[in-house]
């Protein structure tokens, strides 16, 4: 584990859902930095340091990407495909976090090399539990070459 906090990029168009994720990370005292973008295009801009995200200070390279699938402008799957095809970005773990339990979405996500696929539970405590496990798993235990 490294001393520097891992930057998490949350790609989520629903402000409520973004708030839930934010609260949970805060709840479990994960001293990580959460960057939130609201659509696919913004996510790509962030990762390529384009548009509003040219400054490395305000747009640090994420160590984990939480990606919703249904996004305005550029779809989550397109963003995923883009990341996994880019040699600079492909090692960043991408966890799909979506309300969709559709099999077609899962297939397409894994086909595009998603590292994990999580369906947002409708139940409050389950959602909390999921966020807790997700945090520990990806931020504490998961090792990657970065």
């Amino acid at each position: 584990m490294k001393g520097e906090p891992i930057v998490i990029l949350l790609v989520e168009d629903d402000p409520a859902h973004a708030e839930i994720v934010r609260r949970n990370f805060r709840e479990f005292r994960m001293a990580n930095r959460l960057e939130h973008v609201e659509d696919g295009q913004e996510a790509l801009d962030y990762l390529h340091r384009q548009g509003r995200y040219t400054d490395p200070e305000t747009a640090p390279r994420p160590g984990l990407i939480l990606l919703d699938l249904r996004l305005p402008r550029v779809d989550g799957l397109e963003v995923l495909q883009h990341i996994k095809e880019d040699p600079d970005l492909q090692f960043i773990p991408v966890v799909v976090l979506t309300t969709s339990a559709a099999e077609s979405d899962m297939v397409r996500a894994y086909a595009n090399h998603a590292n994990s696929y999580l369906v947002k539970p409708v139940d409050f405590s389950q959602f909390l539990e999921l966020m807790k496990i997700l945090g520990y798993y990806w931020l504490v235990w998961n090792a990657n070459p970065l």
Binding site: D14, A16, H17, I20, R70, T98, T99, S100, A102, K120, P121, V122, D123, F124, F127
Partner: peptide, 14 residues
């Protein structure tokens, strides 16, 4: 189904 489920998740969670 997605768009209906999304606010439902919000409601239950909040």
């Amino acid at each position: 189904s997605h768009d209906l489920k999304s606010p439902l998740v919000t409601i239950k969670t909040f």
